[in-house]
Amino acid sequence: MPRHALTRALAVAAALAFAAPSAFAQQPAHAVPAGYAGSASCADCHQKESASFGATNKGKLFLNHPRNDHQALGCEVCHGPTKTHAESGGDDRGGLITFNGKHPSPVAEQNAQCLQCHEKTARMLWKGSAHESHDVACTDCHTLMHAASERANLRQPTELETCGRCHPAEKTKQLQFAHMPVEQGKIECTSCHNPHGSAGPSLLAANSINEVCFQCHADKRGPYLWEHAPVAENCANCHDPHGTPHDNMLKLSRPRLCQQCHAGTGHPIQPRNPALASDFQFVFNRQCSNCHINIHGSNNPSGEFFVR
């Protein structure tokens, strides 16, 4: 771990941690607008929920340290004006926005509450995204009322479990022979995807599949002297990053994977008999890559055919 990075980070952290509490402690008084009941009123009947929410970061912000009039609405930032509901003793729902229970508000109304504050940064392209256009609710993945995950207010302890509720195949692929260390928590679904919408394909967190992969595998970016066309265009031509039964998360066993494109004379297109000694090197160990090792591209002046 580089010492200079650690030192700088520690200095920043120390400065922020020990900054005078008074710098942000003085909060202006916020009046309760018409139609709103105030968070204290909610706590009269919903003690358990109020206490649980109050222990979360968002709860601390909204209930004790609001930075503007909107946040000062507390519970009603998300649930909308509740005066009618409160004054009826809970009988009249009024315009209450609800996210769970037997009578949740329509998904679009729920999400609109979140977007009041969050329609920016990574969520700027939420509207029209694959999830939004299928009426996925923010609360399908997130919960604010208690801390259920290490980060991101997820409903499940991990991203894998959260995303796996609707994408079970991608989750179970983590048990296949070749997979990435997602189950170990080393990378997460959002290491590659932005579930809140993106300009790229498949809700990817970059402009293309390759650019996502290059975030960690920058060695594959090149540009190489000898480029391999399907690699340069799309890593997913050969790999399924969610996991496969084949080495290196390949979609198919070699040599068949390669024979989908290579139809030249001689050794590339021979059917190959595993029992034949002469076919040994084509079907065992790395198969085609026993020789064509730099298959992602080579910058060796003699790297033609990717053997160097």
């Binding site: 700027m124 392209l125 509207k127 650019e211 594959k220 970016r221 540009p223 060796n300 160097r308």
Partner: peptide
């Protein structure tokens, strides 16, 4: 055999969104 060569990538991106009546949004 050659190994992966040193390389550098610069990427600049601008993103914008505009909300209009009738729940219209342009991005």
């Amino acid at each position: 055999m050659g190994t992966a060569p040193n390389n550098v990538a610069h990427t600049g991106t601008l993103v914008g969104g505009l909300n209009l009546p009738m729940e219209t949004r342009l991005t």
